[in-house]
Amino acid sequence: MTPEEIEPIIESEYAYLRTEYDNWSPTTGEEHDLELVAHALRVLIHKKVVETSTSEFIALGAQQNEDGGWGQTGAANESKIWVAAFCGLMLIRGNQVLEYERISGSVQLAIRYFLDTQQPDGRWCDPSWADLDATSHPVSFFNVVLVLGKEFGTTMRKKVLESWKKGMQFILDSQADDGGWYDQEFHPTGVEITAHLIQDSLVADVMIENVMRVSRPCRKGAQLLLSLQSESGSWDNDNVDHTMDCTRSLMLVSRMLGIERECDPAIQAGMDWIMQHKNEQGWPDFPGMDTNLERTCDGLDTMLKYLAYSEEDCMKIMRYWGYLA
């Protein structure tokens, strides 16, 4: 796929997402699944339409619980680690453009929520997810807080850094010898979780402090993903979600580690497979199934990241994870 081929598809898919506005926007009620909302707001950030989407970001902030987290829906009072981190991440990133004090306040509250809920060994827990999943999201949120959140003051940033290190160490200590991460209950094949965790771990060395020496294990994780790709270009038995996860992750990791030559054929094959299995509007969970709106947001995100990956400026892709101001 070339950027020229992808751009019109981005526009048509984005237009489709807008037609589904009432099904995902937090401005239209508190019953929406906030994970879907966060997926959609990520598209708005990467589509660079945050300035004209102020109300969506403010509405998400307004649905924050008193403890600083978010529940599965805007109306749910019980905060959940995974969804709260995704919401906090979208708010801090959206506020890079908006610079609203109210949203900054929401992000600070979210930071406190994660500082309060971390376990002594560095992990976070959420009964809906593996501990590695649940830890991955707050670590990712803190990655971005440390890079972008200059306004939060020395004391808070110091606490975030300490917490982030503990979370990161928990992740790194859980990596298997083959470079993958596994959870026997949730992720026996390790594909999706490895795709998530190599992109989180990578930041430890490259962006913040050169103390954890994760380049080599991350490279090993990327090589494991390469070895698990099917000949058709997909991962995990034609799993659209996991193929998008792996393709996106390899874009970032290959750029940051300078291993594009090794990874690019897999990225191109992944992109080709993803585009071949798009429905007329949106993406399904597996080829031939009905369109899933969350997967459609993932598809748009993958295409937008691919455009950044295709640019000569190797730093550009990092902005699509919030790892660069």
């Binding site: 997810w129 593996a130 999943d133 959870d183 209950e185 949730f186 992720h187 026996p188 999706e192 995990d236 038995n237 799993n239 979600d241 969970d285 597996f286």
Partner: peptide
Amino acid sequence: RGTLDGYRLRCPIHG
């Protein structure tokens, strides 16, 4: 599309 191990059915998306 889940995987079956005996009577245990695993969702293919998040396990």
